[in-house]
Design a binder for these strands. Structure first.
Length: 945
RNA sequence: GGGGGCGUGGCGGAACUGGCAGACGCGCUAGAUUUAGGAUCUAGUUCCCAAAAGGAGUGCAGGUUCGAUUCCUGUCGCCCCCA
């Protein structure tokens, strides 16, 4: 018996591809190239999840089809293997993170090979390979060696940084410090999110609701020396160049919002005595707006300079440099207490709309430059030191947060924007200062500017401020510089050396590790556990590692490590030239292969990974190491695969069923009766215990009780995780691949159904039987297959299939491609005579989707070599259309009859044929035909009455 | 609260640019074959009506159009992201 047996076929072909290096990337690109890339996985201890192979199958289909279509293909796989989980595991089990990581990588590779992906495994890389992170360190040194020239909007060598004379005159050390302050990689002492439990500092985006994203531990704010990357310099280019890439609009928007470019104005508010004011004003009018704010003014950034007349107070951040200067003696104690408290809160907590706004008066006043009014200066933590200038002018009538604050502290509210007629607000209340209106409108209470629209007013006032030297147009970004250091062991060491004086203390001078001394490997540590102090584990390395001498100067190594993002910022470049020991990538090869043509991965990387790697790419481009300015041409996010659909019913504490429609999750995410808050327990039902009645699913045993029906995210705790290994063992890799693609559109999230896998498996069974004689003892062709003259219908079926499958692969609509192939098999199974050449073409079409069975059938059809490089089937357009079509005839939009007409029948003829149809003639009896709409080959609609 | 996406049979989904709604698959029903079936084959399967004829139907309410799942307005619900 020669049934379709994936368990036997698949390992055999996997071995064949491996041994023959079938998918080795050609040395040279000939003709068109395709670089198809998956977002490489983090090799977790849990192994592969079914979500992984979804995207991987998609790129694999595209890659396999491209090879057959004659393209030169680069399709690699690697591992993003630094990061917290391996280190946590190592700490718990007193093992080495490297060994654990390598073990996990081996599991991943085995699992991936089981799925028959056509990766060039010779190019496998891991970010933890010393030969890889040597170049991560090298790129860091490029960042370290680069400053951003704002005029040219370009990163340039630090040696070309113009040094101001006043710095030059103070000596070489000062020049070095000046340079250090301008590097793209620089040190800072900004307050950071320190997580004692994890023993590390976290990026803002790794902190969620005051807890660490990993492990949910509390996070506190403290100032620490950190490495930062000056990504803000590239904000404009990162935003503008989004126009050049083929990405989903949603992702582009996320990136734009993350960058958060806003335009507005910087305005200086004078403080101090009245006579100083006049001097100040005349100086400003004469000299213009100074680059740096002076001692007796407070600079704010606002996106709404048109509301300047409504600025009734000012707010500075608790960390603002002018706090001390502005605080009066009477207020000193209150201010100090307030600032100390604020230091404990995270930026996120401070901006949280739910918490009440708090603040403290400094005791000082500033002068509103447009109307000369004295307005109080407050300190409040809803203003962040890191955004804008760290100070704002508060316009309570037109800013929600200012309004809330002003109401709390009883500050003046002056409306200066009249909402338009149509605005969805109570205009009376706004005009009375009782409600806040943040939209656009018409200026009021603004002196000579009254009556201007918001946008006109903005231009006019900026013009005025500029003339008076009080302000200027300005651009601001939400994007912050990137906190790039971590106090962990399992990451790339920084290739940085701190200069020591004779006593062994740091002088504050730093330098990069010389290129020839790279890589800086991680030291061997007995104990790399974090100890709850923000002192990196690498501090515990032995002196051999920690200290070094260059040209007679003593240095201590930097002991922070890089965050996990580092390695993933440039891995796509290393795949092009993975073994190069002399460069991170050969420029000729980079030119051949970049950009990545198709990049598929989860939407969770929509912002950070993609923004960070684009940033690095642009720096490398500026410095002449790359010829492309954007790395990823086309980006696709695959949807999430949810668990199987579940039915859930609810019971209260008396074991009484409760309708699901009455249940709502409470704040602790427990199901509860919405009206009373009573906690109920959820019961997972078997599918046959529920049925649909009307709109809802209900209990079969008690149809009055409605139940929930939905698919949940796969999670260990829910126990609905599907292990790809088990699916491969039971149904085969081809079936898993096919099912993942057949489930629905790639970008959508969709629920898993093991029955569905069985369904595509039986499609492969049928395809097998269409070609193979299942009854025979040896592998033989089905008797129906032979050298038959193909019928017209058979040829058309093939050509239609080729056309749709080809087009669908192009637009990644794999689900419809598969359904078309199913139709092909359904049709040919019914054919007594199956011309072999047609079936061969079909096998080629199937092969990118289900490569193992296709190779097997290809061989059986008499071919010696792998089909991996066989020419992709071509279709003839004329063979994809039927000779005749059934055309529906409608009267007033309702189908009354259908007629068969030859394809291409003219409009007039079709109209005549339609009117001549018996049923139509009968239906039209007594009616007047007013109009006939004819769409050739499609439909006839008769308007009559 | 802001932004984005989505609502089509019992389920996943299809429908080109506004032109026969429900392709393909799952599930279900009946039959054939079989010692057996979680195998295979055949037929059926949006809903209402016993069937036919007919009617209704793409979350809901409107609008544009000869014609709307598709475009517009409003509304309800769900999901995701941000706060």
């Amino acid at each position: 018996m020669t049934k379709y047996n994936p368990a036997e076929i698949e390992p055999r072909w996997q071995r064949f591809w491996d041994e023959n290096k079938t998918f080795k990337t050609p040395e040279k690109v000939t003709g068109e190239k395709l670089y198809a890339l998956d977002m490489f996985p983090y090799p977790s201890g849990d192994g592969l999840h079914v979500g992984h192979p979804e995207g991987y199958t998609a790129t694999d289909i595209v890659s396999r089809q491209a090879r057959m279509a004659g393209k030169t293909v680069l399709h690699p796989m690697g591992f993003d293997a630094f990061g917290l989980p391996a280190e946590e595991h190592a700490i718990r089990n007193n093992a080495s993170p490297r060994q654990f990581t390598e073990k996990n990588i081996n599991t991943f590779v085995r699992q991936l090979k089981n799925l028959g992906f056509s990766y060039d495994w010779d190019r496998q890389i891991s970010t933890t390979d010393v030969g890889y992170f040597k170049w991560t360190q090298w790129i860091f040194l490029v960042l370290f060696d680069t400053w951003f020239d704002t005029e040219q909007q370009k990163g340039r060598p630090i040696s070309e940084l113009p040094i101001p004379d006043e710095v030059l005159s103070t000596g070489e050390d000062e020049v070095r410090k000046y340079q250090d302050e301008h590097r793209l990689a620089f040190q800072s002492h900004a307050p950071v999110n320190w997580c004692p439990n994890l023993g590390t500092v976290l990026a803002n985006e790794e902190v969620i609701d005051g807890l660490s994203e990993v492990g949910k531990h509390p996070v506190q704010r403290m100032p620490l020396r950190q490495w930062m990357l000056r990504i803000t310099s590239y904000a404009d280019r990162l935003e503008n160049d989004l126009e050049d890439v083929d990405w989903p609009e949603g992702i582009k928007k996320l990136q734009r919002d993350w960058i958060g470019r806003s335009t507005g104005a910087e305005v200086d508010f004078h403080f101090g005595d009245a006579e100083g004011l006049e001097n100040w004003q005349s100086t400003r009018a004469a000299d213009g707006f100074p680059r740096n704010q002076d001692e007796d003014s407070l600079r704010v950034y606002t996106t709404r300079p048109d509301t300047l007349f409504g600025a009734t107070y000012m707010v500075i951040a608790p960390e603002h440099g002018a706090v001390e200067r502005l605080t009066t003696d009477e207020q000193a104690a209150a201010v100090k207490k307030y600032c100390d408290d604020a230091a404990m809160k995270s930026d996120r907590d401070r901006q949280d709309d739910r918490t009440k706004k708090t603040g403290v008066f400094t005791g000082s006043f500033a002068v509103n430059p447009v109307n000369g009014k004295a307005i109080p200066i407050w300190i409040a933590d809803y203003v962040l030191a890191s955004y804008g200038t760290g100070a704002i002018m508060a316009v309570p009538a037109h800013d929600v947060r200012d309004f809330e604050f002003a109401t709390t502290y009883d500050l003046e509210i002056i409306p200066v924007v009249e909402p338009p007629e149509k605005a969805d607000v109570d205009r009376e209340s706004v005009m009375a200062g009782k409600k806040c209106f943040a939209g656009l409108g018409t200026a009021i209470n603004s002196g000579e500017f009254d009556g201007l629209s918001t946008s006109e007013f903005k231009d006019k006032i900026i013009e005025r401020l500029t003339t008076d030297g009080m302000g200027q147009a300005a651009v601001n970004y939400k994007l912050r510089d990137w906190l790039f250091s971590r106090q962990r062991f399992w990451g790339e060491p920084f290739p940085i050396l701190h200069e020591l004086d004779d006593a062994g203390n740091k002088t504050g001078m730093i330098r990069g590790v010389p290129e020839e001394d790279l890589p800086v490997d991680l030291p061997q540590l007995e104990d790399f556990k974090p100890h709850g102090r923000p002192e990196p584990p690498l501090e515990k390395a032995d002196d051999d590692w920690l200290y070094t001498v260059i040209d007679g100067v003593n240095y201590k190594r930097e002991t922070n490590t890089m965050p996990q993002w580092a390695g993933s910022c440039w891995y796509y470049l290393r795949f092009i030239d993975p073994d190069n020991d002399g460069a991170f990538v050969d420029p000729e090869l980079e030119k051949q292969w970049m950009p990545v043509d198709l990049y598929i991965g989860g939407a969770e990387h929509a912002v950070l990974h993609l923004l960070y790697s684009r940033f690095w790419h642009k720096v490398l481009y500026d410095r002449g190491h790359l010829r492309t300015s954007e790395p990823f041409k086309k980006l696709v996010n695959q949807g999430m695969i949810l668990g199987d659909v579940e039915f859930t019913a609810y019971r209260d504490s008396n074991e009484q069923w409760i309708c699901a429609s009455l249940i709502k999750e409470n704040d602790e995410k427990k199901p509860a009766v919405e009206s009373t808050g009573e906690i109920v327990h959820a019961i997972k039902l078997e599918p046959d215990q529920a049925e649909k009645v009307g709109e809802n699913f209900v209990l079969k045993s008690d149809p009055k009780i409605s139940v929930d029906s939905r698919a949940y995210k796969m999670s260990k705790s829910r126990g609905n995780v599907v292990n790809p290994d088990e699916i491969v063992a039971e149904y085969g890799a081809d079936s898993l691949r096919l099912y993942l693609m057949f489930m629905g559109p790639l970008e959508k999230s969709k629920p898993w159904s093991t029955n569905g896998v069985n369904g595509v498996k039986s499609f492969l069974d049928r395809a097998w039987r269409m070609i193979v004689d299942e009854e025979s003892e040896t592998l033989e062709l089905n008797a129906a297959v032979g050298d038959h003259e193909p019928t017209d219908e058979q040829v058309r079926t093939l050509h239609k299939t080729i056309k749709q499958v080809t087009k669908d692969i192009e637009v990644l609509a794999f689900n419809t491609a598969i359904s078309r192939m199913m139709e092909f098999v359904n049709f040919f199974t019914k054919q007594e005579q199956r011309p072999q050449p047609l079936l061969e073409q079909f096998v080629l079409l199937l092969s990118p989707f289900a490569p193992h069975i296709s190779e097997e059938l290809w061989k059986l059809l008499g071919h010696d070599s792998s089909l991996a490089y066989q020419a992709w089937p071509q279709y003839v357009e004329s063979m994809t259309v039927d000779a005749a079509n059934e055309v529906p005839i409608q009267i007033k939009g309702k189908i009354k009859s259908k007629i068969m007409v030859p394809t291409g029948t003219s409009k007039d003829d079709l109209e005549q044929l339609a009117l001549a149809d018996e049923k139509i003639a009968a239906a039209l009896d007594g009616l007047t035909v007013r109009k006939v709409i004819v769409i050739p080959d499609k439909l006839v609609n008769i308007v009559a009455g």
